[in-house]
């Protein structure tokens, strides 16, 4: 309805009295604008390419780090399940004591397996491995202790540590040793890298928003006279800014796709090397590529960045343009 001329019906309401009809018109208009924005990008292919490349790279970097962290986490998780606690027993412990303790431990619900390395067996092994061989025969008494290798059922470093402390208090146990420190170090490292990934991602993505904002700003400046004309014939700021928002969204979407392609290309390139690394772990783990969910998130992030960047640009710049 017109503001100045009460009875004058204007626009869609004059030919489409139903609400649903008007919604449909709005959908059509938006569709047309989004497609024409795409065409607009096509008209300046070089500039579009440069912008998408810059954006794509700034998205590729954090996405790659994310992939790396994800896989390292997987490795450390697979190791969590296989730690071992070595119980070094007191020298005074007899074979019977050892057997008793072993049975006792096997009854512990947190223990998966108990394996005995008797002092004789340990000596035998030491002789073979060390190469001192006969020289050791001169030692009258075997100085090595009995050792019980305990495999815990628990699979987190913290729980394993707890178990180790408990076992250390058992009778005849001289020392309980958990090979955990390197796991913890790895976990801490992964954690640190993850934090760094977030920080870098935030910085890069903020940069991406600025890049999109600047591209859109240049587009707006380029179309200054066109925008003036549109304002003169009664276009609202909302109508004028919509194609620019779509442009931003397209740029973001393309950047997301580019980042995905670059990562896939990188994985393909590194496939051989990765296979060698993973074979060292005897197929305990297999390098995980981007999941479909992560691919979708990448696109969604791109779209969001495009929208935010272009929104910031249109907010300030389209309102500033006034016909004179």
């Amino acid at each position: 309805m017109s503001i100045l001329f009460g009875g004058r019906a204007t626009g869609a309401e004059s030919f489409n009295p139903t609400f649903a009809g008007r919604i449909w018109m709005a959908v059509l208009t938006n569709l047309r604008q989004s497609i024409s924005s795409l065409g607009e990008l096509w008209r300046t292919p070089l500039w579009t390419l440069i912008t998408v490349a810059v954006l794509g790279v700034s998205m590729t970097f954090p996405a790659t780090l994310h992939l790396l962290v994800k896989n390292v986490q997987q490795v450390s998780n697979s190791y969590d399940k296989s730690f071992e606690i070595s119980l070094f027993l007191q020298n005074t412990a007899t074979e019977t004591d050892v057997a008793t303790l072993s049975t006792l431990l096997q009854g512990n619900p947190e223990v998966a397996e108990v394996k005995l390395i008797s002092k004789d067996a340990a000596m035998q092994e030491f002789k073979q491995e060390s190469g001192f061989g006969e020289a050791l025969d001169f030692i009258e008494q075997n100085p090595l202790p009995h050792v019980l290798l305990v495999t815990p059922k628990v699979n987190t470093p913290a729980a394993a540590q707890q178990l180790q402390e408990n076992l250390a208090k058992e009778r005849f146990v001289e020392l309980a040793k958990l090979d955990i420190s390197w796991l913890e170090r790895l976990a801490a490292l992964v954690n640190l890298v993850q934090q760094a990934v977030y920080a870098i991602a935030v910085l890069l993505l903020a940069g991406a928003i600025l890049v999109i904002g600047n591209t859109i700003r240049l587009l707006i400046m380029d179309k200054k006279s066109e925008i003036e004309v549109m304002k003169l014939v009664g276009a609202t700021d909302g109508f004028i800014q919509r194609p620019f928002l779509y442009t931003g969204i397209w740029l973001g979407l393309f950047a997301g796709i580019l980042a995905f392609l670059v990562i896939e290309l990188m994985l393909w390139w590194l496939e051989g090397a990765l296979a060698r690394v993973t074979s060292l772990y005897q197929s305990q783990f297999h390098f995980a590529a981007l999941t479909f969910g992560e691919f979708s998130s990448l696109l969604l992030i791109g779209i969001t960045l495009g929208f935010i960047g272009s929104y910031l640009a249109v907010r300030s710049h389209i309102r500033a343009i006034e016909p004179a």
Binding site: S2, I3, L4, F5, R8, T10, V233, G234, T236
Partner: peptide, 30 residues
């Protein structure tokens, strides 16, 4: 049409312009 233009806010300006056909010397075509 009886409406004082000073009551028109800047958000309303586009709608007012739709009621006025404007022609310019330099035609201002896209």
């Amino acid at each position: 049409n009886g409406i004082d233009l000073s009551t028109i806010t800047s958000r309303q300006i586009p709608y007012v312009r739709r009621d006025i056909g404007m022609i310019f010397q330099d035609h201002r075509l896209l």
